[in-house]
Computed example of a mutant assay.
Amino acid sequence: MKTFATVLLVIGGLATTAVAASDQERDQPRVNTQMHGANAGQAAPDPDTIIVPETFSAPAYFGQIAFDQQCSACHGKNAAGSTGNGPPLVHPIYEPGHHGDTAFQRAALGGVQAHHWGFGDMPPVEGITPETVTLIAAYVRELQRANGID
């Protein structure tokens, strides 16, 4: 039992070390890069540097409206994140191969425990529907593709 407790302490220490920020990076969101490669450690983008397509598909157009109303307070303008509130969704961690559209559904409808960033848990979004989340995901995916995240 003592060995198991020691292992837990070591694992906990490694996880804490993996997400700890240096003094210079304290204003940047923290991300655990251990399991997700070097790109996962990229800082949150400046909202004004996000490439926004001139036109969106119809679902993404309506998704942008819903995102601005339901999500931007935490996930920032153009899904670039909001220091202290929520992570950027235009970021390699949220590429479709790692966080598929079902991850957006689960997070928005049921909430999600913090597992990549130091922002804390995401509560469910009150009153949102699966159809609206599908539109929001379309918007985020089109923003991601415009910014080289496939």
Rank of each mutant, 00 (worst) to 15 (best):
P87M: 06
P92M: 08
C74H: 04
G84T: 13
D68N: 15
H98N: 15
P92V: 05
P59K: 04
S82K: 15
I65R: 08
I51K: 14
H99V: 03
G86L: 00
S72Q: 14
P59I: 09
Y61T: 14
T55L: 06
N85E: 14
E54C: 05
A60M: 10
F62E: 15
H75M: 07
D68E: 15
P59R: 04
A73H: 08
Y61D: 12
T49F: 03
K77N: 13
A73R: 11
C71K: 05
G84D: 15
F62Y: 12
I51N: 13
N85R: 13
T83K: 09
D68Y: 02
Y94C: 00
P92F: 04
N85D: 12
T55M: 09
G81T: 04
N78S: 12
I50V: 15
I93R: 01
I51P: 01
E54Q: 12
A60F: 06
T55V: 12
A58K: 09
K77Y: 08
H75R: 08
T49P: 01
A58F: 08
T55K: 11
A66T: 07
E54Y: 06
F62A: 09
G97A: 10
Y61A: 15
L89Y: 09
F67C: 02
A79K: 03
F67E: 00
S57I: 04
A80E: 01
G86A: 08
S82I: 01
H98Q: 15
F56H: 06
P53D: 12
H98R: 10
E54L: 13
Q64L: 11
I50D: 01
S82Y: 06
A66P: 00
D68T: 04
S57N: 07
E54M: 10
I51R: 14
G86M: 05
G81E: 03
